[in-house]
């Protein structure tokens, strides 16, 4: 059983290997939960079919033969595994946070989710993006496939600006219906432009979840001293005195969050706001709550 202390971001992120990180978190999340002893493919019996020569013998229902002396084949309906697209924002704005950067926190969430979905035999794909799609790993149900995801996550660095709407537009062209799309980003972009592609994906019967990663500093602007702040994405630099503008800033930022929540709700998108000071178990409880 994992001590919850280990699930604190600053502790977990000290582990460089994403795989181990993810496994630790998964272990931590599911520790204490009773697991079933039965393992294997979940197949559902639907009907019997008269055996014709040449058909596989192992599917013959011998019990029915014993009763009826006729050969029938068992017919199963195959359970279709869910295709999960995890979209990770790797724009420059994600490279922020002390001691835990948003990108590191987000990568850990991606890795953990990948592991969880893989264990459920769901096929997980990863899309990293900034102003365009950077990496596209389609979801494939394959053993240890998530290692590919890990390696991408390990090497991927933040760059460029964010343009989620453009990315979603491109993605909608590349994917089919009924996917589970998880977007992990700080969503520091224009909300209005985001709504249209989101609605489009929703209408394609995709289930969408937005995980909003923010630092406490971004929400509260707690620092004291006046300083020059430069925009990580645009490079623009301005002089800021947090003390004098804190109240106004918080008000604006809360309005932004409210708008975001309201818009996602309209588009039937699940929304989770997670700050980087949250322990991972709590973050996942938040995500899995819905």
């Amino acid at each position: 059983m994992i001590d919850k202390e280990f699930l604190k971001p600053e502790v977990i992120l000290k582990i460089k290997n994403l795989d181990i990180r993810a496994r630790l978190i998964v272990e931590g999340i599911f520790s204490g939960i009773h697991t079933s002893s039965k393992k294997g493919l979940s197949c559902e019996f639907t009907e019997h079919k008269i055996y014709n020569s040449g058909e596989p013998v192992n599917l013959i229902d011998w019990k029915v033969y014993g009763r009826t002396e006729r050969l029938f084949l068992k017919k199963f309906e195959e359970e279709s595994n869910m295709k999960v697209f995890i979209l990770l924002d790797v724009s420059n704005s994600m490279d922020f946070g002390e001691p835990v950067k948003k990108i590191d926190y987000a990568k850990t969430i991606v890795a953990t989710l990948s592991l969880i979905f893989s264990k459920q035999n769901d096929s997980v794909g990863l899309v990293t993006f900034n102003e365009d799609i950077v990496d596209f790993i389609p979801p494939v149900q394959k053993r240890n496939y998530f290692n590919n995801i890990y390696s991408i996550l390990q090497k991927r660095r933040t760059s460029k600006k964010t343009d989620i709407s453009k990315v979603l537009y491109h993605l909608s062209k590349r994917i089919k219906k009924r996917n589970y799309i998880i977007i992990i980003s700080d969503f520091l972009s224009d909300i209005e432009s985001l709504l249209k592609p989101l609605k489009g994906l929703s209408t394609m019967k995709n289930e969408i979840r937005c995980i909003h990663i923010l630092t406490r500093e971004e929400i509260e602007l707690n620092s004291d001293n006046a300083k020059y702040m430069f925009d990580l994405e645009t490079g623009k630099k301005i002089l800021v005195d947090p003390n004098s503008i804190r109240r106004e800033y918080r008000k604006l930022f809360n309005n932004f969050l409210e708008n975001l929540r309201f818009s996602f709700n309209e588009c039937k998108v699940h929304y989770n706001l997670i700050t980087t000071d949250n322990p991972f178990d709590r973050a996942f409880m938040e995500i899995f709550k819905n």
Binding site: F96, D186, M229, F230, D231, L232, L239, D241
Partner: peptide, 27 residues
């Protein structure tokens, strides 16, 4: 010395910039 610090987005700060610059000079 005024430090340079990164910030994800200056969207919510930019309006106050000019006022602040004068204020800092005054200070």
């Amino acid at each position: 010395k005024i430090k340079n610090e990164p910030f994800p987005s200056l969207l919510f700060l930019i309006e106050r910039e000019r006022k602040l610059r004068n204020y800092i000079k005054f200070e």
